[in-house]
Every structure is written in structure tokens, then in C-alpha cells.
Computed example of a mutant assay.
Amino acid sequence: MSRQRSMETILTSEFVSIGELVRLTNARYSTLKFYTEEGMLPFEQAEENLTRRYKREETVTRILLIKELKTGGLSIPQIKKALNMDE
């Protein structure tokens, strides 16, 4: 198991792990994993160890938007539709 990166390092990194996204957004790991599996959070996969890497800035922005839409009462299918409209 690797050592956790400092928040300072995470905030200056282009790519972050799902665990680091949990720390950045206060979202639950299982929630972010679900969003990833539903195609709501794009990622890149590093071939050497099959680790999913997320672009920090755009992914944090997207997670915050999803949280906002959920708070507004939208369902997952409605949120997916809203996200596709932004692209």
C-alpha cells in the first residue's frame, strides 16, 4: 500500500486517484465508484498498474455539479442527461 500524498501535492497534481477525489470533495468512495461505473466521471487508465486516474480540476467540478443536481432533486438518469448536454 502506498503512502497518502499530501493535500498540497494533490492540489497541484493534474491527475488524482479516486481516494484523493474523496478527500477533495467529501464524497463517499462508493458514490464516486458508482458515478465512474455509470460513465459520469471520465478517467484515464494507466496501463502499467491499471490504476484509474482522474483529471483533478474537471472531475472535482463535475462531482460538485452532480451533487448540486442531486440536491435539486434530479434522478441519476436526469443527471446523466444534464451532463451530456454540457459536453
Rank of each mutant, 00 (worst) to 15 (best):
Q78H: 12
I66Y: 02
F34Q: 15
L74K: 14
L74I: 11
T12H: 12
M40W: 04
T25Q: 06
E38Y: 05
T36K: 03
E58I: 07
I79A: 05
L21H: 00
T61R: 13
M7D: 13
E8A: 13
M40K: 07
K81D: 09
T25L: 06
L69A: 06
S13T: 04
R5W: 03
E57T: 15
E14D: 12
R23K: 10
R53L: 15
L50W: 01
R52L: 13
Y35K: 02
Q78R: 14
R28D: 11
L50F: 00
S30Q: 15
E44C: 03
F43T: 00
K55T: 06
I76H: 07
I76W: 06
L65D: 09
R23M: 02
K81H: 12
L50K: 13
Q4P: 01
L74V: 08
P77K: 11
R3C: 05
A82T: 03
G39E: 06
N49H: 08
K70R: 15
I66G: 00
F34N: 12
M40A: 11
L74R: 10
I10W: 02
L50M: 04
V60M: 07
S17P: 01
E58R: 10
F34P: 00
I10C: 10
E58Y: 01
Y35E: 01
M1Y: 04
T12C: 08
I18N: 04
N49P: 00
L65K: 08
K33N: 07
L32N: 03
P77V: 09
Q45F: 04
F43V: 04
L64A: 10
K67C: 08
T71I: 09
L41G: 01
K67G: 02
A82C: 08
R52Y: 14
G73S: 13
S75E: 14
T25N: 09
L74N: 11
M1E: 04
I18M: 13
S13Q: 09
S2M: 12
I63H: 01
Q78T: 10
V22M: 07
P77A: 11
E57Q: 15
T59H: 02
G72K: 15
S17H: 06
N49I: 00
E38V: 09
G73W: 11
K81V: 01
T36H: 04
E47I: 09
M1F: 05
I10A: 07
Y29L: 15
K70F: 02
T59Y: 04
F34D: 11
E57P: 01
T25S: 03
V60A: 10
M7A: 12
E8N: 10
R62V: 06
I18W: 01
A82Q: 04
D86E: 13
I79W: 00
I66F: 02
K81F: 09
F43I: 03
E44I: 09
R56H: 11
Y35R: 01
Q4M: 09
E37Y: 07
T25F: 03
N26W: 01
K70S: 12
D86P: 00
L24D: 04
E38S: 13
S30I: 11
T51P: 01
I66T: 02
Y54E: 03
V22W: 03
G39I: 02
M85E: 15
L11C: 09
T36Q: 11
E8H: 03
K70C: 02
R53G: 05
R56C: 08
F15D: 06
R56Y: 10
T61G: 01
E38H: 10
R23I: 03
S75D: 07
G19N: 15
T12R: 14
L11R: 15
R53H: 14
A46S: 12
Q78E: 15
T59L: 05
L24M: 11
E57I: 13
